[in-house]
């Protein structure tokens, strides 16, 4: 089966070095977030800190980055994660990883891959779309 994709945002809605939360399933909370790591590079992870099951990570809507912009941070207990692979380099879940979510840039748009995801919420949103 060909992968299916859901449009998330225009790429310029996530400036380079910044992050943005998304709620593709309409749960009323951002279940994943995207970090624009470069002009043509993005990464995305579940908004769930590996330290405390399901803990939401931002301190405010879309604010997932440390003050110096070098790391993804969990503002629950101060864990820092490497943007490129989600490895926790400092804090209570050191050595553990964020759960990656597949996203892609096509032209000036950002898409979320709806199949083959670890994220239960996103899997369900695919089922809803197919229904």
């Amino acid at each position: 089966m060909a992968p299916s994709w859901q449009h998330l945002a225009r790429l310029d809605e996530v400036p380079v070095g910044e992050s943005k939360g998304f709620d593709p399933r309409g749960e009323g909370r951002d279940s994943l977030f995207v970090v624009r790591t470069g002009e043509a590079f993005v990464v995305a992870y579940r908004n769930a800190c590996p330290h405390v099951s399901g803990a939401r990570m931002a301190w405010k809507k879309d604010r997932f980055m440390s003050g110096d912009g070098r790391h993804i941070a969990c503002f629950a207990h101060g864990a820092l994660f490497r943007p490129k692979d989600g490895l926790c380099v400092s804090g209570p879940c050191q050595g553990q990883y964020l759960t990656a979510v597949e996203v892609a840039i096509r032209g000036e748009e950002l898409y979320l891959r709806l199949d083959n995801l670890c994220h239960e919420g996103v899997m369900q949103s695919r089922k809803e779309l197919e229904a």
Partner: peptide, 8 residues
């Protein structure tokens, strides 16, 4: 609440 200080 989460805070920018990295504590609740």
């Amino acid at each position: 609440f989460n805070s920018p200080m990295g504590v609740h």
